[in-house]
Design a protein around this nucleic acid. Structure first.
Lengths: 207, 207
DNA sequence: CCTTTAGGCGTACGGCATACGCTTACGATG
DNA sequence: CATCGTAAGCGTATGCCGTACGCCTAAAGG
């Protein structure tokens, strides 16, 4: 009976994401999204309660593209976890501006749960008991969250690291920084993950 | 010759920190800090270029309390790293509102460098070569950053986890969540760190 | 005592989220 | 086809925010 909606939540999320990808997180405002759609600012409030709900819409839209299918069970379990982690990193990494938003809304998102389910299953198969599983799962999440942020904020082989390499008062750190340029972003991420997996008990043997 | 300054940067940082600790990060505004000091809003701009510089002041003030002294060399190196990590977590954890600010300003902060120096030294002593050191150091930082945020956003034994425990469509995850209540925040943090250290090669032997 | 310099304040602007009330398009019903 | 209830969409207004700019004044050197 009433007038039909002229916008789907998905169109709204797409518009907001376009704004973010173009102008960064700071460019995201109700006005900007309304303009992107070609609607008045207040018209948006017919679709979302407030700005937070719009953000949630964007995050869900992006995170929903993470494939939650358990990987082929023929592989060793640490490889399967790597695959799951890499899927998450791939999706988040293609929208780096979203990272702070995802962090802030993490607890409300169903995707993290859907992602965690197969990971928990793999850890159980690997023989970890309940308590070990709790700790391993949280550690993996902590590592992924932290690594993605560090990666986004300053590439390892970038200018910031170069500055450190020249600091005479920090001999060990600068010596370490000089080795940074031949570690790619991917090697760094997977290297760290491999350390964690080895600690959990599933990685290749100790050096 | 000119009129002397009536405020030290430290007083400014202290006032801003008081506002944050009382009203949260959202409560931090130039107006609020000015009122806290008993000065007009624009008076603050005699001391800082802009809001960002005020934030930097607060972060430096807090992070400067992290003890950068290398721990007693008699201990095994993985214990020494644990001590360094715990110092960082202790300081940041007592001002949880600051976490997003610290993340955003991370690259400008000298404290992280001062902290990283002894950690790099310990890793070198442990026998890691340059490349391994780069990866281990970044991993530790990633874990700490991620874990502190996860810890702050949702306690493991809290209501959020309880909800998960009742989700029938996520059998492995909910089974895992049911074990969460007997893992304290500290156990979780140190358990994850122990996994990472074991992977690096310095933790207690594999299970 | 006078001059100079920076300290401190008030005002004003443009941007933000959003509360509220009006107008209007729609489509089900008579 | 005419009518009307409902929700869509818009305009206005409020109260935040950071901060540019110009004025007045305190204080120290000569």
């Amino acid at each position: 009976m009433p007038r039909p909606r002229s916008l789907t939540p998905d169109q709204l999320a797409t518009a907001a994401l376009a704004v973010i990808d173009r102008d960064g997180l700071a460019g995201l405002s109700m006005r900007a999204v309304a303009q992107e759609i070609g609607m008045s600012t207040m018209g948006l409030y017919r679709y979302v309660e407030d700005r937070g709900e719009l953000e949630q819409l964007v995050i869900d839209r992006v995170l929903d593209t993470v494939d939650p299918m358990p990987p082929d069970r023929g592989r060793p379990w640490h490889e399967r976890i790597e695959i799951m982690v890499e899927r998450l990193r791939g999706v988040v990494g293609s929208h780096p501006w979203l990272v702070p938003l995802i962090i802030a809304h993490r607890h409300r998102s169903a995707t993290i749960l859907r992602w965690s389910e197969p990971v928990a299953a793999i850890l159980a198969e690997a023989g970890l008991d309940g308590r070990e599983r709790v700790i391993a799962l949280r550690s993996l999440l902590a590592y992924v969250v932290g690594a993605i942020q560090l990666e986004q904020l300053g590439p390892l082989a970038g200018a910031g690291t170069q500055v450190i390499a020249d600091r005479a008062e920090l001999p060990y750190l600068s010596e370490t920084a000089r080795h940074a340029h031949d570690v790619t972003t991917d090697e760094e991420f997977h290297g760290g993950l491999a350390l964690l997996l080895r600690g959990i008990g599933g990685g290749p043997a100790i050096r």
